[in-house]
Amino acid sequence: MDIMKIVGIGIIATMLAVILREEKPEIALQVSIVTGLIIFIFVISKLNSVIEVLKYFASKTNIDLMYFTIILKVIAIAYITEFGAQVCKDAGEGSIASKIEFGGKVLIMIMAIPILAALMDVITKLMV
């Protein structure tokens, strides 16, 4: 099964990283980054079918497709922000990690502005 592949790779890479940690910590960090990348790429390629199904549901229930693409973009930003922040935390750079997370939050907030505007329109229509 796929999960066994992921866990196997993770454990082997952790062993290699531990071997390298006291001699060459920078290369140990790069081993952990590559492992994260491989597992990420493996998982993301499986996400495609889920997105197609969600798009089909969104188009069937005549929701404006713009909202759905915004949600997808927010998920993508969250995915990459979490990846980068985790790598920096592993390397011990907590401050860089928090800056990356802060940047990700701001970008997601910018992405969500149209939805907020639409929400305000609905509310003002109800009030009138």
Partner: peptide
């Protein structure tokens, strides 16, 4: 992964 670990070692 193994290539990078080998280079590291």
């Amino acid at each position: 992964i193994f290539k990078i670990a080998a280079i590291g070692i």
